[in-house]
Computed example of a mutant assay.
Amino acid sequence: MTAARLLLPLTLSLLAACAQQQPSNVTLQQSQQDECPLDLHSGQQLTLTLASNPTTGFRWEVKDAAPGVLRSLGPEVYSNPEDAGLVGSAGQSTWRFQATNPGDGRLLLLYHRPWEVDVAPAKTFDCHISVK
């Protein structure tokens, strides 16, 4: 009987600890840029997805990837919705990062035509990242 009494508070403590645990993967899209600055914990993964259409010549360029606090988990991955069925239709570009070290950084991407050097980018994604 004593073991059962001890088991209940222990179970409740474990459930409370799990409820406070941070998700292992944070997903962010361009429409969610107002959620920046973004607070991450070391070890969390960040998936960033931005609308893209490289057939127009426009590309997302990573200008600042928050070095020291984020580590890239691979190159940009472009995907086109399969149901669109249209050549040249828009898709999305996705990047994955992992929060590595405590500190602050800036995740800055520019959507532009790389050969147009004196033209302002068509879109910008700018997010302050804080890793704890």
Rank of each mutant, 00 (worst) to 15 (best):
L6H: 11
L73Q: 01
K63F: 02
T11R: 07
E82G: 10
Q92T: 00
L50P: 04
A17P: 06
T47H: 03
T49V: 02
P23Q: 03
K63Y: 02
D64L: 11
C18P: 14
P67H: 01
D126M: 12
A19Q: 15
K132L: 07
S72R: 09
V87N: 13
L38Y: 08
L12W: 11
C18K: 12
I129K: 05
E76K: 05
D104V: 14
D39V: 03
D83L: 07
P81Y: 12
A120E: 11
F125V: 10
Q30V: 12
G91P: 14
L108M: 00
A3S: 05
T56M: 08
Q29C: 11
P102C: 06
E116P: 04
S79I: 04
T2V: 11
S93L: 02
S89Y: 12
M1T: 08
V69I: 13
P9Q: 06
S130H: 15
G105N: 09
L70V: 02
E61W: 04
L86W: 15
L14E: 08
E116Y: 05
S72Y: 03
L70I: 03
L86T: 09
L50C: 04
H112C: 12
G91E: 14
A84E: 12
T11A: 05
L40G: 01
P37M: 13
L46C: 03
L110I: 09
G57E: 03
H112R: 15
Q22P: 11
Y111S: 07
L7N: 07
S13K: 05
L6C: 10
S93K: 01
A4W: 06
C36M: 14
Y78S: 00
A99G: 03
D104N: 13
L107F: 01
E116H: 05
T56S: 14
W115Q: 04
L70N: 01
T100F: 14
L110E: 13
L107V: 01
Y111N: 07
K132S: 13
D64M: 12
T47V: 11
L15C: 12
S72G: 14
P102E: 08
W60E: 00
P81C: 10
L73C: 02
Q33A: 14
T11D: 04
L28C: 01
G85A: 10
T2Y: 05
A16P: 07
V119S: 00
G88T: 12
S89W: 15
T94P: 00
Q29A: 13
L50V: 07
F58G: 06
L50D: 02
E76L: 13
C127H: 05
L70D: 01
T47Y: 02
Q45A: 15
S89N: 13
L48Q: 00
S24Q: 05
Y78G: 04
K63S: 02
A66W: 04
R113A: 04
S93E: 02
R113V: 04
A90N: 09
S93N: 03
F125Q: 06
W60A: 03
H128C: 10
T11V: 11
L86G: 06
K123L: 12
P9I: 02
T55F: 15
L109V: 11
E76S: 05
L15G: 10
N80R: 15
S72F: 04
V87A: 14
